[in-house]
Computed example of a mutant assay.
Amino acid sequence: MNKFFIRCIVFMLPLVGLLSGDIFMSLDVFTHRPWEALLFKSNKTMYFYPNQNLTKQSVGDLCHHTPFAIKKNENWITDKLGYRNNTFIKQADVLIIGDSFIVGSSITQDSTVTNLLTKKLNRKIYNISPANFVDFIDLLNRGEIEKPKTIIYSLNERGIPSPIKLSEQTRIMEDVSSFSVFKDKVTRLYSLKYLNSRLNGKNGKGVPGTIDSSMFFLNGKEEKYHYDKILNVAQTIKSYKDYCESIDVDFIFLPLPIKETVYFDKIPLKMQPDYLLKLDSVLHKNQIKTLNTLELFKNYRKSNSKLIYHLDDSHWNANGVELIASKLAEYIRKSKY
């Protein structure tokens, strides 16, 4: 019997040692980028752990754990609501609602669109990303934030905006104590998932381009575009604009092209997808303020060879963010406020 228990203990020791890593090691030890390291899995009202300052050498989402992965230094700072901001701002001049592009996946803190706009405009810029428009309304109703002067709603062209469906009562903010963060960190079981991934040789599932095999895409030629949903997308965006007008807030829509669209010739595709160009036309007919970001990137590529998306990631790089931030700053300066 004693030998049996001894064998069990010997067998369990490596597992216990591995699981102890979830308890005692840093948040990012079993992840390839800060996004997963800070992910608050058990909290439904907060996306990332709050009040964090994490610096990590990361790689992109498309070919991690392969020879094509490119190491980058990323610093992430989250505020008390778990959003990626240097500091919490209750009443911003400009509030940005967006997805992983606005969060700044594979971008260090100083190069996020939020921080670049802050420097260019010298105004209070705050983002609640990743989020949808109803999340903004919910934060407003809870009194967590106050209405800004301008809202920028951003969406990459894969996304479909959600219609405004207000619940009967405001959601209650979940517990965000240090213990709840600790409990989430332990119960994520990242150590076991990491071990399983390494044993099974899992890596990024990006698709290499045919013209340039060092440039990876999320879907490549298999990318689907929502041409049949253009009118519905525009109508939903218009409902966001109408809501903002009802509370006396200026509204700007910022559509962002995906890598497949910008670098269509590297996949290659015969023609550049024009989904965003067609959407832009419909938005203007509905008198919605919007930026033609695809046209901006197209014009840039005509005279510049410097990349605006990461080779090993589906998101834009610091150069791409700079282009958008400069155009946004110019656009906002010309706006009514």
Rank of each mutant, 00 (worst) to 15 (best):
Leu117Arg: 07
Asp184Cys: 13
Val134Ile: 11
Tyr126Gly: 14
Asn127Phe: 01
Lys147Phe: 00
Val113Leu: 13
Glu146Phe: 03
Asp138Phe: 00
Glu168Arg: 11
Thr170Met: 07
Thr170Gln: 08
Ser154Ala: 15
Thr170Lys: 12
Lys124Trp: 03
Pro163Val: 06
Ser129Leu: 06
Ser178Asp: 14
Leu189Phe: 15
Thr118Gly: 04
Leu189Ile: 10
Ser111Gln: 14
Ile137Lys: 12
Ala131Trp: 01
Leu116Phe: 01
Val181Asp: 02
Ile137Tyr: 00
Lys165Trp: 00
Pro163Thr: 08
Lys183Glu: 09
Val181Pro: 01
Glu168Ser: 14
Met173Phe: 12
Thr150Tyr: 11
Glu144Ser: 15
Val134Arg: 02
Arg171Leu: 14
Ser180His: 09
Ser162Gln: 15
Asn115Phe: 02
Arg158Val: 02
Ser162Asp: 12
Ser129Asn: 10
Ser129Asp: 05
Lys185Trp: 08
Ile145Gly: 10
Ile164Gly: 10
Gln169Phe: 10
Asn115Gly: 04
Met173Glu: 14
Phe179Lys: 13
Leu155Asn: 10
Gly159Pro: 01
Ile145Trp: 01
Ile164Phe: 03
Val186Lys: 09
Gln169Asn: 14
Ile125Thr: 06
Lys124Glu: 13
Gln109Asn: 12
Val113Tyr: 02
Leu139Val: 00
Phe133Ser: 07
Asn127Asp: 10
Asn132His: 09
Val113Asn: 02
Ser177His: 06
Lys147Gln: 12
Arg123Glu: 13
Asn132Gln: 10
Thr118Trp: 05
Lys183Phe: 14
Pro130Val: 13
Thr150Ala: 08
Lys119Thr: 08
Tyr126Met: 13
Glu146Ile: 01
Lys149Phe: 04
Arg123Ile: 04
Asp110Pro: 00
Pro148Asp: 04
Ser178Tyr: 08
Ile125Met: 08
Ser167Arg: 12
Arg123Leu: 15
Ile164Val: 13
Ile172Val: 15
Leu140Val: 06
Asn141Ala: 11
Asp184Gly: 12
Ser177Asp: 08
Pro163Ala: 06
Ser129Ile: 03
Tyr153Leu: 06
Pro130Cys: 05
Ser180Phe: 07
Leu155Val: 03
Lys119Ser: 11
Glu174Gln: 15
Asp135Glu: 13
Leu189Ser: 10
Ile164Gln: 07
Asp175Met: 04
Phe133Tyr: 13
Glu168Ile: 09
Asn141Glu: 14
Lys165Ser: 13
Thr170Trp: 08
Val181His: 02
Asn141Thr: 06
Lys119Gly: 00
Leu121Ile: 05
Asp175Arg: 04
Arg123Pro: 01
Val176Ile: 14
Thr170Arg: 09
Asp138His: 04
Glu174Lys: 13
Thr150Asp: 00
Ile151Tyr: 07
Phe182Cys: 10
Lys120Cys: 00
Pro130Gly: 02
Asp135Ser: 13
Ile137Ser: 07
Gly159Asp: 12
Tyr126Gln: 14
Pro148Gln: 07
Leu155Gln: 14
Leu117Trp: 03
Lys147Glu: 12
Ser129Pro: 05
Leu139Phe: 14
Pro161His: 09
Ile151Met: 04
Ile151Cys: 03
Thr112His: 05
Thr112Cys: 04
Asp135Ala: 10
Leu139Pro: 00
Glu144Ile: 04
Thr150Cys: 10
Leu117Ala: 06
Leu189Met: 15
Ile151Glu: 03
Thr187Val: 09
Phe182Glu: 11
Leu140Ala: 08
Ile125Val: 15
Arg188His: 13
Ser167Trp: 00
Tyr153Pro: 01
Lys185Arg: 15
Asp138Gly: 01
Thr114Met: 13
Gly143Glu: 05
Ser167Asn: 14
Asn156Val: 05
Gly143Met: 04
